[in-house]
Amino acid sequence: MTFNLNNPSRERAERQLRYLARRPESVLVLTETASSAGCDLLERRFTAAGYSVTFPRPEQRGERGAMIVSRLETRPLETGVTYLPHRAVGVTVDSDEGPVDVIGLYVPSRDATEVKTERKRNFLQECRHRLLDGEGDAMRLVLGDFNVLEPGHVPRYRFFSPFEYEFYNWFGAAGYEDAFRHLHPEELDYSWVGRTGDGYRYDHAHVSGRLADRLTACSYVHEPRTMPDRLTDHSALAVGLAITATQPLQVSDPHHEPEPVPALF
């Protein structure tokens, strides 16, 4: 499952932790992370509970990235992305059919300024040139908050540029399938909704060709965004695959891990 944390405060991170600990997914791609008290809490508590946590911290103040939290044993996976590498995080897990690569992306957002536009353009170009493809026998998922839309998105928004649609199209050319579209060719659903009520399908999951036939589910989970005391401004995206993990970890409930008591002396 990919879940945009929206760089939580410590209090909101506690609530997110309670929610995420109850989710059935084995691997969580958490986006919009930062070097902050809230993300520190999530990393610390998941690690203390026995989860595998991969969190390359953004070094620049105000910068955002991604974290992968897993109930399965993981190995580091080099994504090859060297520009804003904390926004492209990879791990490998083992299954009964071989290794499965999981790559989490948090693509920069932009406005109309040249600086932010070039920053996003450069990151997307780096991903297209560096990320592993989905051809052949590879079992690979790339998921996260891409901050781009599919070219046929309904409604159509004029302010997206060709380079953003090109990034979405790259996945098809590289042997990937849009997991949501593979199972729901005509459905309109959104992971972020603006103040005017307009919806955007920003959060995506793309699977390599070999995994497309093993897709059992791919759907948006709106509860974190729509609940009265909402956890984040994005809906999550959950993906189900008909494969069996072979290296599960013994984990406890991270929400009930006690916080260390500060020493008085």
Rank of each mutant, 00 (worst) to 15 (best):
M67V: 06
A66C: 13
G134T: 02
L124V: 03
E59V: 09
R44Q: 13
E257Q: 15
A21S: 15
R181H: 08
P224W: 08
L20G: 11
G136I: 06
N7G: 08
H182L: 09
E186T: 14
A205D: 01
D137C: 00
G209W: 01
V239P: 09
I243Y: 07
H153Y: 02
A174K: 06
R156K: 12
Y190H: 10
H206I: 00
D40S: 13
V221G: 01
T33V: 12
V115E: 13
R214V: 08
Y220F: 15
R230F: 12
G199P: 07
E166K: 05
T246N: 11
Y165G: 03
L183F: 10
E11M: 14
T74D: 10
P260D: 04
M67S: 02
Y202W: 14
L264A: 14
R121V: 03
P155V: 05
T31S: 09
V27E: 08
T47M: 03
H153S: 08
W192H: 14
T244M: 12
E187I: 04
L143F: 07
V148R: 00
T226L: 13
P56I: 03
G104A: 15
Y202D: 02
P260T: 06
E186M: 09
K120I: 03
S95G: 11
T2S: 14
F3W: 07
H182Q: 13
E63Q: 11
D96G: 14
G199Q: 12
D213Q: 13
V261E: 15
E32T: 03
A236H: 02
R44D: 11
L188Y: 04
F171D: 04
E259G: 00
G98N: 06
P185G: 04
T74L: 09
A242E: 14
Y202G: 02
S235Y: 02
R75I: 00
L5T: 15
K116M: 03
F55E: 01
G65C: 10
S109F: 09
E187P: 00
L231T: 05
E126R: 10
K120R: 10
R23T: 10
D178A: 04
P85G: 11
P162L: 09
H182G: 01
P76T: 08
H129P: 00
P224S: 09
R44S: 13
I103K: 04
E150D: 12
H206N: 01
L5R: 11
E166N: 11
V27I: 15
E150M: 02
P260G: 06
R44N: 02
S35L: 11
H184I: 00
V102Q: 05
A174D: 02
Q125K: 10
Q16A: 07
D229S: 13
E14A: 15
D40E: 13
N122T: 12
L211E: 10
R195I: 08
E43W: 01
F265A: 13
